[in-house]
Design a protein around this nucleic acid. Structure first.
Length: 584
DNA sequence: TTAGGTTTCG
């Protein structure tokens, strides 16, 4: 007979126990009786920690109480479980569970005198051909509009907002989840667990969760959910028509036709009543200055400094802007060198900070990630004329900022994998042949470049009146020709130098003939700061073209400040028309 | 205990 380990059955009325089994009362469990086709049912009132016996066998002792015989002086019995069955049982057992034990061996209990329980105990193991069934309690679910302070409830909800699990400042991982249900009430739950796997596996807004044993408390005038002992969750894809497969870390859970129906109904309600379009984007669709969620594959990672960490990722598309490359030591970069090189034009560098560093470090190369609320920032460095895009995952968890690892079974991952396999790597590598075009960072792929060229060759409304004798030549031809040549081109302006107007003119020193940049705002600040530390020179006061006044500040620094009122035709103007010069 | 939704030091 195949051993059935902890099969979950729902409610006594529909108990699908083998038909040859008959229920046995506690008082009939006596030596000398035939118990071959009998089972005993009771409630778990005690369970001891799992132990290993001298010969290495797992051993678990639990105590079951007979609910039908509560009035008897002796209404509980020790159950001794051996081997794999003990191990399996220990994983799922919970105080208050109803267990059914069949195929047991009955023996005298050596501890009956001390523990006051039944004179015999039941021994069960796979070898004995035993079976243990856990009878699922009938769960009641509370809608979000009926939650009461101080209760522990079971509930369903559609994820409206979530923070993927992150390392809290205490000892646990934390995940914050806001749910909504057809009662149109919102509930924000703060979930803690030392085991990352025990928190709900939520991947996107719109997922549906079932929480068991969540504690309800009032906080700031609103109901709040918080993990309580025995908290368990199931998470489902919220898409109408998707398979109803729960994501969970529980070894045993109840999930029957009724639950399936609830999920399907919630999906339909959400589809008609909620908008769940998140800020997801592909790298090809990013814009500067936005926050977005990226589903991608990890290609490389490297430590940068104490508070930041680099992730190199790709999603098979190409970012339409020049992207930032974070400088790191080659020896610090983890990842397949060949792959990193092959994908160098398709990967982007994401710098993650502070609390995300620990999680980022633990990520495995090749894994699929969803990085939530990445910030794209436009910036240019001193030696670049063209600005680039930087990707930051700032510290903190506002707006659900964080990193989630997606399993290969996730539908979005399956789609991404198929797409990544279809990407022609030769195309992205050919980009290097584009020379200066590539350096300007303007084209993203050969296809992109060609479509740009086609658009550039289209007739425009601007009519050029000069050089009519020359035909238009493609940029490609120009680039492949030897200088000097004369061409006429029609092209779209993608970038220009200098980027800033003040870079168009230079300061010239007539003595040494040197040329320097006109200082920009920051440099001017610096120069002015320098002069602020020198006190005004009294000899330069009250000249023919200005009147000066000077005073000393009252603060500790006792700074000397001079104001020069500039005259016009040796006359002072009306105050509102006067040009002032300030020193100090 | 932790966090308790509402974007940034880089």
């Amino acid at each position: 007979m195949p051993v059935q380990l902890l099969k979950i059955i729902k409610g006594e009325s529909e108990t699908p126990l083998p038909s040859h089994l008959q229920k046995e009362d506690l008082k009939h469990l006596q030596e000398g009786f035939d118990h071959t086709n009998k089972y005993f049912q009771g409630i778990v009132i005690l369970s001891y920690p799992l132990k290993k016996l001298g010969d290495g066998t797992d051993f678990l002792k639990i105590v079951l109480q007979d609910l039908d015989d509560l009035c008897s002086r002796i209404n509980s019995i020790n159950i001794l479980i051996y081997g794999k069955m003990a191990e399996d049982c220990a994983k799922v057992i919970r105080h208050g569970d109803t267990f059914v034990v069949a195929g047991f061996k009955l023996a005298k209990s050596p501890t009956a005198r001390e523990d006051g329980r039944h004179g015999c105990h039941l021994e069960v193991s796979e070898e004995e051909g035993s079976a243990i069934y856990s009878v699922a309690p009938k769960y009641a679910y509370t809608t979000l509009n009926r939650l009461k302070d101080g209760t522990v409830v079971n509930l369903y909800g559609i994820v409206k907002f979530f923070k993927p699990p992150y390392v809290s400042k205490g000892t646990d991982y934390c995940s914050v989840v806001t749910l909504v249900d057809p009662s149109n009430v919102k509930l924000t739950c703060t979930l803690f667990n030392g085991n990352l796997d025990s928190l709900p596996k939520i991947y996107k807004v719109g997922d549906i969760v079932r929480f068991h044993r969540i504690k309800i408390r009032e906080y700031n005038g609103q109901m709040q959910g918080i993990t309580s002992a025995g908290f368990a969750s199931l998470t489902f894809d919220g898409t109408v028509g998707a398979p109803v497969v729960p994501r969970t870390s529980s070894k045993a859970y109840t999930f029957m036709d009724e639950e399936q129906k609830i999920i399907e109904e919630l999906r339909v309600w959400a589809a008609t009543n909620l908008s769940v379009s998140g800020p997801a984007a592909k790298l090809s669709g990013v814009q500067p200055m936005l926050y977005f969620d990226l589903t991608c594959q990890l290609v490389g990672k490297a430590k940068v400094d104490g508070s930041s960490f680099l992730l190199k990722v790709w999603d098979g598309t190409r970012c339409p802007y020049p992207t930032w490359k974070v400088p790191v030591e080659a020896r610090d970069l983890e990842g397949e060198k060949v792959v990193l090189h092959q994908l160098r034009n398709l990967t982007v560098d994401i710098l993650v900070y502070d609390n995300h560093v620990q999680l980022a470090k633990s990520l495995k190369i090749g894994s699929f990630l969803r990085i939530y609320s990445i910030h794209t920032k436009q910036a240019s460095s001193d030696n670049e004329d063209v600005s680039h895009i930087e990707f930051h995952l700032h510290g903190g968890t506002c707006y659900g900022r964080g990193i989630g690892v997606l399993p290969e079974s996730n539908p979005d991952v399956k789609e991404l994998k198929t797409f990544l396999e279809s990407v022609d790597l030769a195309d992205s590598q050919n980009m290097e042949g584009m020379g200066s075009l590539e350096l300007d960072g303007t084209f993203n792929s050969v296809t992109d470049l060609e479509s740009h060229l086609q658009r550039c060759q289209q007739l425009s409304v601007t009519v050029l009146t000069d050089h009519q004798d020359l035909n238009n030549t493609k940029l490609k031809t120009v680039l492949n020709s030897t200088a000097p040549q004369q061409y006429r081109i029609r092209a779209k302006l993608r970038t220009y130098k200098p980027q800033k107007l003040y870079q168009s003119i230079k300061l010239h020193c007539s003595k040494c003939n040197s040329l320097t940049e006109v200082p920009d705002g920051d440099d001017t600040d610096f120069i002015l700061q320098g002069s602020a530390v020198t006190a005004p020179n009294p000899e330069l006061h009250n000249t023919s073209w200005y009147d000066s006044v000077m005073w000393t500040t009252q603060d500790q620094k006792q700074r000397k400040i001079a104001i020069h009122f500039v005259k016009h035709d040796e006359m002072l103007q009306q105050p509102e028309d006067t040009l002032l010069m300030i020193e100090g």
